[in-house]
């Protein structure tokens, strides 16, 4: 198949570059689900942390199980998408690690200590912890 090798004319070179650009545009359009996916993970994490810390603290283990199951299902769903945008895995991993770190060592302990089980405080705190997901989603829109 590599036998026929013709040097492209400038017009052919331009046409090839235009076609490559068209393909990449189409791929980027079909990868927009990932931005919404990250935003959805962020939104669900706000609901989950608020529910677990302020609304139903005695059911935290059940809610933790629900979160873990949802996270696994979302991961499986993500793996089945026909195309995974460039850097998607890294963005999700970094955002998840940052979210977990914020919740576990910064926002979580401070909110628990100062406001105990106040729903508005936990809503705000979980929104702050979820920022890495929203930042990762926003970065994807710019890419």
């Amino acid at each position: 198949m590599e036998g026929k090798f013709t040097v492209p004319t400038p017009d052919e070179a331009r046409a090839a570059l235009t076609e490559a650009q068209r393909v990449q545009e189409q791929v980027r359009r079909s990868g927009r689900w990932f931005t919404w996916f990250l935003a959805a993970v962020g939104a669900v994490s706000i609901v989950w942390i608020t529910a677990m810390e302020a609304v139903w603290p005695q059911g935290r283990y059940a809610l933790a199980g629900v979160w873990a199951a949802l996270f696994l299902l979302a991961g499986e769903w993500m793996k089945r998408r026909p195309a995974l945008p460039l850097g998607a895995g890294r963005r999700l991993t970094v955002a998840t690690a940052a979210w977990f770190g914020l919740y576990l060592v910064a926002v979580g302990p401070v909110t628990r200590w100062q406001w105990d089980t106040s729903v508005p405080a936990w809503t705000l705190a979980s929104a702050v912890a979820a920022l890495p997901f929203f930042v990762a989603a926003w970065m994807g829109r710019r890419a």
């Binding site: 090798f5 076609e19 650009q21 990449q24 195309a83 995974l84 945008p85 460039l86």
Partner: peptide, 25 residues
Amino acid sequence: PIVHTPARFSVLALLAAVERAEFRF
């Protein structure tokens, strides 16, 4: 010569924009 074929160049252009893609896509 491997990349030069228009179809292969397009395939590489697509793959350069993703981590991975399904055959049908």
